[in-house]
Amino acid sequence: MSFRDRHAIPDLGVGVGFRIPHYPRVLDSTERLMDWFEIISENFLVAGGRPLENLSRLADKYRVVPHGVSLAIGSVEPLDTSYLAKLRALVARLDPPWVSDHLCWARAPGVHIHDLLPLPYTREAVDHVVERVKRVQGSLERPFALENVSSYMTYRDSTMTEWDFLAEVAERADCGILLDCNNVYVSSRNHGFDPAAYVDAVPADRVVQMHLAGHTDKGTYVLDTHSDHVDDEVWDLYRRAVARCGAVSTLVEWDDDIPEWEVLAAEAAKARAARAEVLAAPRAAEVG
């Protein structure tokens, strides 16, 4: 039985991130504006006040899934138990079908770098992350999904491809995958690999969610900025991923230069249409 079936992972449709400029529109509207919302977990790991009030109002109307940026699953520093306790409380409040964070490291002795730093793709890193994912998943008592990150550096010590690394971690830790199609594309441009090969190698049955976002070409590298429309080549990758993975919840991220709600909603509608088109095609899985 697949990971998605074992954990009864639902297809939530297409959602967007819950971001401050859209709070009034989303919370005050009597219409149902979106299939679901993703929140950045850390923004709501606070004691009280407006953040939690807004979250309650959102959760009253929509399915909400927390997506973290600070777990630092690949750091050698011990897991932050205080962070995990707060995340567990957030999970209890929202009862989401899964929880996600990034396959990266971010903490070192005395400092939290607040970035999604790639790991060297080595046996040691696989073993390290697998153990920590098991602990996190057990602690949260909720399916946990790892997202592939955009990266701007590669390691001399890596002994496998990123997609093999991701697949092995997910299989051995028995966790889900949040496949970020833009991140695959950004990293493929930065490191010169075939993004289609990446998508084709991901264990399809473990993909519980996909991300779409825009990026910025900085000349010597491509930066994952979430500040623009989804690029055409990322749309192509997304279609390929849907053909391979099937009906998987999709999320459009837009975190910088945030547009009017209608622009974001149109991008989500575009994802919905692309997804529907691929899923309606006969033998979609043949693409993969």
Partner: peptide, 18 residues
């Protein structure tokens, strides 16, 4: 000794991005 670099960015420049 850690970063590999590529034809556009040296190892040090890759780390400098972060």
């Amino acid at each position: 000794r850690i970063a590999r670099g590529n034809e556009r960015l040296s190892p040090v420049e890759q780390v400098d991005v972060y």
